[in-house]
């Protein structure tokens, strides 16, 4: 008996492996809950509770939006070998851009489009900087994008505590509320700011077409798979990477605009703007195996885990770290399934 690489697993096998690993992760979770004195079945029910009512679904949806936008862009970036782990920072840049337009430019019909444009551009700029540094000086983008996260983090803290601090907020660290023209419409009384959701779906589908049906995408795939071949063909590697970085930064920026203009309606402390979407989206992109369209599936899945975790926190008032461990366990299950579905067990005496 031995493991062998299986380069083209059948869909059924992939599905079964995922089911198996999900089962294992849930089993582990059950044990964990048992240790805390919570009946596992009740915990499972809570974890899946967001799926049972519209409010819960809305919660899943709300978390899906930024994961979708960022994940689609990251799927592209990772595929061509640009390891952008600064989506969190690019998201915050987008939020800053949106807040600037909302708070300091005269409000009007143009407010929302302008916020998306400006916020997205700031995100693109932020990612583009890392790509430029890599193309020009060979600086590793993993380091730069990571460091850039901290820079924006403190920029936002500075803004909400200093120059942009709201006039009517007293002790709190946030800006004034955005004018109504700068607030995104939502579905009913949920927090689902649907224009951003539409943008995310368009982005995932658009990137898929771009990557697999256009000459530009063709070049991206050549570069990502075999940089030597790209050189041999005379492709402009630096430019291709820059372009992908700009796109992925732009999408992360859009996600930031959506968060502040659709949910919080003001700029506030960075940890409250994003629940680490920029990092969770890395998983969404990775689980989608570098296919932007796949993120349409993986983003809601991760959205459910996040929303289910929240439901657990609220209902059981467990220490919230435990809930994070639970989410982590589930993600680990996915990672294991992803890795194992690409191998096969060969049975021989």
């Amino acid at each position: 008996m031995r493991w062998e690489l299986d380069p083209s697993p059948s869909p059924r096998k992939v599905l079964l492996t995922y089911a198996l690993f999900l089962g294992l992760a849930l089993l582990g979770l059950g044990l964990l809950f048992l240790l805390y004195g919570v009946p596992p079945l009740k915990a499972y029910a809570l974890l899946l509770s967001p799926l049972t009512d519209t409010l819960g679904l809305a919660e899943v949806m709300r978390r899906t939006i930024p994961l979708l936008l960022i994940g689609a862009g990251l799927a592209l970036a990772f595929r061509i070998g640009f390891f952008n782990i600064g989506a969190e920072g690019q998201l915050l840049m987008g939020a800053v851009g949106a807040a600037y337009v909302a708070l300091f430019l005269p409000p009007g019909l143009w407010s929302l489009p302008l916020m998306f444009l400006f916020g997205g551009s700031l995100g693109a700029l932020w990612a583009g900087l890392a790509a430029w540094l890599r193309a020009r000086f060979g600086v590793n983008e993993i380091l730069t994008t990571l460091m850039q996260n901290y820079l924006v983090y403190y920029l936002v803290v500075y803004l909400v505590a200093g120059p942009w601090k709201g006039q009517m907020v007293f002790g709190f660290l946030y800006t004034d509320r955005f004018p109504p023209e700068a607030q995104l419409p939502r579905l009913g009384d949920t927090l689902v700011h649907w224009p951003t959701l539409v943008l995310g779906m368009v982005a995932a589908m658009g990137l898929q077409v771009l990557l697999f049906r256009t000459p530009l995408g063709f070049e991206w795939r050549v570069l990502g798979e075999n940089p030597e071949a790209a050189r041999y063909l005379g492709l402009k590697g630096g430019r291709l990477i820059l372009l992908a970085a700009l796109l992925s930064g732009f999408l992360a920026g859009l996600a930031g605009v959506g968060e502040v203009a659709g949910i919080h309606l003001r700029l506030l402390e960075p940890a409250q703007i994003s629940l680490g979407y920029g990092f969770t989206a890395i998983l969404a992109a990775w689980l989608a195996r570098g296919r932007p369209l796949g993120v349409l599936l993986t983003a809601p899945l991760l959205g459910l885990i996040l929303a289910g975790g929240d439901a657990l926190k609220l209902a059981l008032s467990m220490p919230f770290r435990v809930v994070d461990v639970a989410a982590g366990l589930l993600l680990l299950g996915f990672i294991g399934a992803e890795a194992l579905s690409r191998r096969r067990l060969v049975w021989r005496r």
Binding site: E225, N226, A229
Partner: peptide
């Protein structure tokens, strides 16, 4: 290894110059 992209199809590799 420089002349082909292994993960891409035969057709795509034949079109590397003319896509």
């Amino acid at each position: 290894s420089m002349g082909v992209v292994e993960g891409m199809s035969v057709a795509e590799n034949l079109a590397l110059r003319t896509y």
